[in-house]
Measured scan of single mutants.
Amino acid sequence: PPDDERKKAEKAARSGNEEKAREILERLGYSEDEARELAKRLR
């Protein structure tokens, strides 16, 4: 489910793995720019 994926992205971002967070968010349908912004904010 998307919620689980989003949680994974948050966890990745918090542990400093912004790249992985961005990949997950892009898979969820965010654009590259949106995903980058979100990954930064989740950190």
Rank of each mutant, 00 (worst) to 15 (best):
P1M: 13
P1G: 14
P1D: 14
P1R: 13
P1E: 13
P1Q: 13
P1F: 13
P1V: 12
P2R: 13
P2H: 14
P2E: 14
P2S: 11
P2T: 11
P2M: 14
P2Q: 13
P2D: 13
D3W: 12
D3Q: 10
D3C: 15
D3M: 11
D3G: 11
D3P: 10
D3E: 12
D3A: 10
D4M: 11
D4S: 13
D4L: 13
D4I: 13
D4H: 10
D4Q: 12
D4Y: 11
D4K: 11
D4F: 11
D4R: 11
E5I: 07
E5A: 10
E5H: 06
E5Q: 10
E5G: 08
E5Y: 09
E5S: 09
E5V: 07
E5K: 06
E5T: 08
E5P: 09
E5R: 08
E5D: 11
E5F: 10
R6T: 07
R6W: 15
R6P: 03
R6H: 12
R6L: 15
R6Y: 15
R6I: 15
R6F: 15
R6N: 04
R6E: 07
R6V: 14
K7R: 14
K7F: 10
K7V: 11
K7D: 08
K7P: 04
K7L: 13
K7E: 11
K7Y: 10
K8M: 13
K8P: 04
K8V: 09
K8R: 12
K8T: 09
K8S: 09
K8A: 13
K8N: 11
K8H: 11
K8Y: 08
K8F: 09
A9N: 02
A9V: 05
A9W: 07
A9P: 04
A9T: 04
A9F: 05
A9L: 05
A9K: 02
A9Y: 06
E10K: 09
E10R: 12
E10T: 09
E10L: 15
E10Q: 11
E10Y: 15
E10W: 14
K11I: 15
K11L: 15
K11N: 12
K11R: 15
K11W: 12
K11A: 15
K11D: 15
K11Y: 12
K11V: 13
A12S: 05
A12M: 12
A12K: 03
A12E: 11
A12Q: 08
A12N: 04
A12G: 04
A12I: 07
A12W: 15
A12F: 15
A13S: 04
A13R: 02
A13E: 03
A13V: 04
A13F: 06
A13K: 02
A13W: 09
A13G: 04
A13P: 03
A13I: 06
A13L: 07
R14F: 07
R14S: 06
R14E: 05
R14H: 07
R14K: 12
R14I: 10
R14A: 09
R14W: 09
S15P: 02
S15L: 11
S15I: 07
S15G: 10
S15F: 08
S15C: 13
S15V: 07
S15Y: 07
G16H: 05
G16K: 05
G16R: 04
G16Y: 06
G16P: 02
G16N: 05
G16L: 07
G16I: 04
G16Q: 04
N17H: 09
N17K: 06
N17E: 08
N17W: 11
N17D: 15
N17I: 04
N17R: 06
N17V: 03
N17Q: 09
E18I: 15
E18C: 14
E18P: 05
E18T: 09
E18G: 04
E18S: 05
E18Y: 14
E18W: 14
E18D: 07
E18Q: 07
E19N: 09
E19P: 07
E19H: 08
E19T: 12
E19C: 14
E19M: 13
E19L: 13
E19A: 14
E19Q: 12
K20M: 13
K20V: 12
K20I: 10
K20T: 09
K20Q: 10
K20D: 05
K20F: 10
K20P: 03
K20G: 08
K20R: 10
A21R: 03
A21S: 05
A21H: 03
A21P: 01
A21V: 05
A21I: 08
A21L: 09
A21Y: 07
A21C: 10
R22S: 03
R22W: 04
R22G: 01
R22I: 13
R22V: 13
R22K: 06
E23Q: 13
E23V: 08
E23A: 12
E23D: 07
E23R: 13
E23I: 11
E23C: 15
E23H: 10
E23W: 09
E23P: 02
E23T: 08
I24A: 03
I24F: 05
I24N: 01
I24L: 07
I24G: 00
I24R: 02
I24D: 01
I24V: 02
L25Q: 01
L25N: 00
L25W: 08
L25K: 00
L25G: 00
L25D: 00
L25S: 00
L25E: 01
L25A: 00
E26I: 15
E26W: 02
E26R: 15
E26V: 15
E26K: 15
E26L: 15
E26T: 11
E26F: 06
R27V: 03
R27E: 04
R27N: 08
R27I: 05
R27S: 11
R27M: 08
R27H: 07
R27Q: 10
R27D: 03
R27T: 06
R27A: 12
L28H: 02
L28Q: 02
L28N: 02
L28D: 01
L28P: 00
L28Y: 03
L28F: 04
L28A: 07
L28W: 06
L28K: 01
G29N: 01
G29S: 01
G29E: 01
G29A: 00
G29W: 01
G29Q: 00
G29M: 01
G29R: 00
G29P: 00
G29L: 00
Y30V: 02
Y30N: 00
Y30K: 01
Y30H: 04
Y30L: 09
Y30W: 05
Y30Q: 00
Y30S: 01
Y30G: 00
Y30D: 00
S31T: 12
S31M: 04
S31Y: 00
S31D: 05
S31P: 06
S31R: 04
S31K: 05
S31F: 02
E32T: 11
E32S: 12
E32N: 07
E32M: 09
E32F: 11
E32Q: 11
E32R: 11
D33K: 11
D33Y: 10
D33A: 14
D33E: 13
D33H: 10
D33R: 09
D33N: 09
D33F: 09
E34G: 03
E34N: 04
E34M: 07
E34Q: 09
E34A: 09
E34T: 05
E34R: 06
E34L: 05
A35Y: 03
A35P: 00
A35D: 01
A35S: 05
A35E: 00
A35Q: 02
A35G: 01
A35L: 03
A35V: 03
A35W: 03
A35T: 03
A35F: 03
A35C: 04
R36A: 07
R36S: 05
R36I: 07
R36T: 05
R36G: 02
R36K: 08
R36L: 07
R36D: 02
R36W: 08
E37G: 05
E37S: 12
E37A: 14
E37D: 08
E37I: 13
E37P: 00
E37H: 10
E37C: 15
E37K: 12
L38G: 00
L38P: 00
L38Y: 08
L38Q: 02
L38R: 01
L38T: 04
L38I: 12
L38K: 02
L38N: 00
A39D: 00
A39G: 01
A39V: 14
A39T: 04
A39N: 00
A39F: 07
A39R: 02
A39Y: 08
A39E: 01
A39P: 00
A39I: 15
K40I: 07
K40P: 00
K40M: 14
K40Q: 09
K40R: 15
K40N: 09
K40L: 09
K40D: 05
K40Y: 11
K40T: 08
R41A: 07
R41M: 10
R41I: 07
R41P: 00
R41Y: 08
R41L: 12
R41S: 06
R41K: 11
R41W: 10
L42W: 15
L42R: 03
L42T: 02
L42I: 07
L42M: 15
L42P: 01
L42S: 02
L42N: 01
L42C: 07
R43W: 14
R43L: 10
R43G: 06
R43I: 07
R43K: 09
R43D: 01
R43V: 09
